[in-house]
């Protein structure tokens, strides 16, 4: 069992290498076809042509494109993702320090969306086109259609400006508090570990609205998917027999849930990857400074090394997520 799982994982990692290379090449090309000249950005506005040529030479921009790509890959293999030209810090450092902030937003939202969405979807599937189904479809359609960033703005207006319940939509902690020393890099977890209850409460307060917005946006697809999966399973023979044999609704729901586990886990992977993207917009609106917020800034500032690093990080995240999903599937359905 363990051996099949490890060979399986190895195969998956090998298969994803061409995918990663493709994504790397796309991002590598796009910063080079762009309008902005990286050399001009680094040298500054008053650089004379001599300095520009020198910077270009230092960056290897005078080389053919495939030589540049090769050199880029070699540096990647050594763990060198380049430096952000905005502050000169290595990109890898940025990625690692910002990732926990994003995970702290995305993971609770994903968990909430599934804890709420799956029961709703299952319930709706029991009586398609019934009242409950109609209402839940309406909620799902809204979750599908609402722009998350706009939802964030509306939440800020209602809960910060009008009601005063939420803290100012900026940062991870109230201004007057000092963040506890990082242990794990997860702000709330660090505050809890340090026993700093005030900081922990403030941190959770800052997290509440963004998580709720993201949950609603993620919940729509979850409801729709859970409903579709449940309807398919409800039409299968073993459920039909169970119903004919007079099993209780609760018991049948449990059977459906068991059957829905594998497709739901697969869907959770897809959702998680897309939440990394949607989450970046929420981080941007609430100025949380996570990986997504940092990445969007890099895109807006044409910070090439940072953009490449961000896209690469997302690609690696998605490969890892899909790998974990496949391993979970293998554990849940060993015969598959």
């Amino acid at each position: 069992m363990l051996k099949t799982a490890s060979t399986f994982a190895l195969r998956r990692v090998l298969i994803s290498i061409p995918v990663l290379l493709g994504i790397l090449f796309v991002t590598f090309m796009l910063v080079r076809i762009g309008q902005q000249d990286p050399a001009a950005m680094i040298a500054g506005p008053i650089a004379d042509p001599g300095i520009l040529t020198q910077v270009r030479k230092d960056l290897g921009l005078d080389q053919p494109i495939w030589v540049q790509f090769g050199a880029y890959l070699m540096r990647l293999l050594q763990g060198d993702l380049g430096r952000s030209w905005q502050d000169g810090t290595p990109v890898l450092h940025h990625l690692l320090s910002h990732l926990p902030i994003t995970l702290e937003l995305v993971l609770p939202a994903l968990a909430l969306a599934f804890l709420l969405g799956v029961p709703i979807g299952l319930q709706a599937a029991l009586r398609p086109n019934g009242l409950f189904d109609q209402v839940s479809r309406g909620i799902a359609l809204f979750g599908f259609s609402v722009p998350t960033y706009w939802l964030g703005l509306m939440a800020i207006f209602v809960f910060f400006y009008s009601l005063g319940w939420a803290p100012a939509p900026m940062g991870l902690l109230s201004m007057e508090l000092v963040a506890p020393d990082p242990i794990t890099g997860f702000p709330t977890l660090d505050a809890l570990l340090a026993g700093d209850w005030k900081a922990a409460a403030s941190s959770i307060g800052h997290l509440a609205l963004p998580v709720l917005c993201l949950t609603l946006a993620a919940g729509g697809p979850v409801i729709k998917q859970a409903r579709a999966i449940a309807i398919e399973i409800l039409g299968m023979d073993h459920i039909l027999y169970a119903r004919a044999a007079g099993f209780s609704t609760r018991r049948i729901q449990r059977m459906v849930l068991r059957g829905a586990l594998v497709p739901l886990v697969t869907f959770a992977g897809v959702e998680l990857v897309s939440l990394f993207a949607t989450g970046s917009l929420v981080e941007y609106v609430f100025a949380r400074g996570g990986l997504g917020h940092w990445g969007l800034n890099a895109i807006m500032q044409s910070d090439f090394a940072a953009v490449q690093g961000y896209v690469l990080a997302l690609a690696v995240c998605s490969v890892v997520v899909f790998l974990v999903v496949d391993l979970c599937t293998l554990l849940l359905e060993p015969r598959g």
Binding site: V19, I33, G34, V273, S280, G295, L314, S318
Partner: peptide, 15 residues
Amino acid sequence: AFPTIILALAVVAAA
């Protein structure tokens, strides 16, 4: 395998 919105953002920002 990739969140399309980020790719769209990056490409349009560059182009």
